[in-house]
Amino acid sequence: MLGFLLRRLGDVIPTFFGVTILVFLMIHLIPSDPIQMRAGERSIDPERYAELQKEYGFDRPLVVQYFDYLGGVLQGDLGESFVTKRPVIEEFATLFPATIELSIAGILFAVIIGLPLGVIAAINRGKWLDHLTMSLSLTGYSMPIFWWALLLIMFFSTTLGWTPVSGRLSIMYYIEPTTGFMLIDTLISDEKGAFISALRHLILPTIALGTIPMAVIARMTRSSMLEVLGEEYIRVARAKGLAPMRVIMVHALRNALIPVITVIGLQVGVLFAGAILTETIFSWPGIGKWIVEALNRRDYPTIQGGILMIAFVVMGVNLLVDLMYGVINPRIRHKR
């Protein structure tokens, strides 16, 4: 198991360098010059320009700049926002819990709904229940997030008035951020009703964000289950006289989950992409919304830092998924 862990870590390191190089180059590959950009409409006199170049270190060779940047990244220094002048990493840290909260809710929604749907479809293969669940998941998969989010808002918020339209918490409450996770913070606060409010705010963004991963997980679970159900060991398990439920939930699902877990891991990347849209639509104060705002303001250090951090998180989650894969699949665990 330790060897397996080290091997996986070994795979991650080149990816880490690749990502930092890409993000670093980004600022040098975009057609506009960041200093010119910041000057905006006003022209900038050449002397001041050279001064600023020096200040930001843009006058040095690219390689030197990269290692400088890398050194900073390794020490947790992602530069300062052009706009707020606050360290990017700090802003990230304040906003990240909101995104994690939404993402976890989204992926939980996707797994909790998607897995059973896939299993139900597989064991009813070819019958109407199978067709129904699979058409539903195809619809979910094909629905653009912004469109789906607007539909949800129109129906549940505007028409039915069940859920709030945007934000994380009703303005009636003020909650001091302790963990940054609104559900936890409201739960430990004295404000009565804040938790319910936070929960109601979370529902629609969760559905909007979780629908595509849910559809992907449902389809993957179905096909994986079908494959496993045709295996000889399933027949052997039934020949032991086990109840059908046990055969499906223990013998089949355990094996069918192996590819599904990989897919869930891959969905984390999709989830962050979706979070950017979802947060913008629901005014959810997370890093998705933050990056979109930074893009609008050409706040390059923030964009760079944000992308880099998202890449790290995705890499971390994929590593975690790989490890989980090893835990549930003995063949991987024992491979030297």
Binding site: E232, Y233, G241, L242
Partner: peptide, 26 residues
């Protein structure tokens, strides 16, 4: 249910391909 109580208890079966007869996860 009654039939399953016989299957695997009073009647056992062995299959053709042992390599695929065991569940790889257990």
């Amino acid at each position: 249910g009654k039939r399953r109580a016989i299957t695997g208890k009073d009647i056992g079966m062995i299959f053709q391909d042992p390599m695929s007869a065991l569940n790889p996860c257990f």
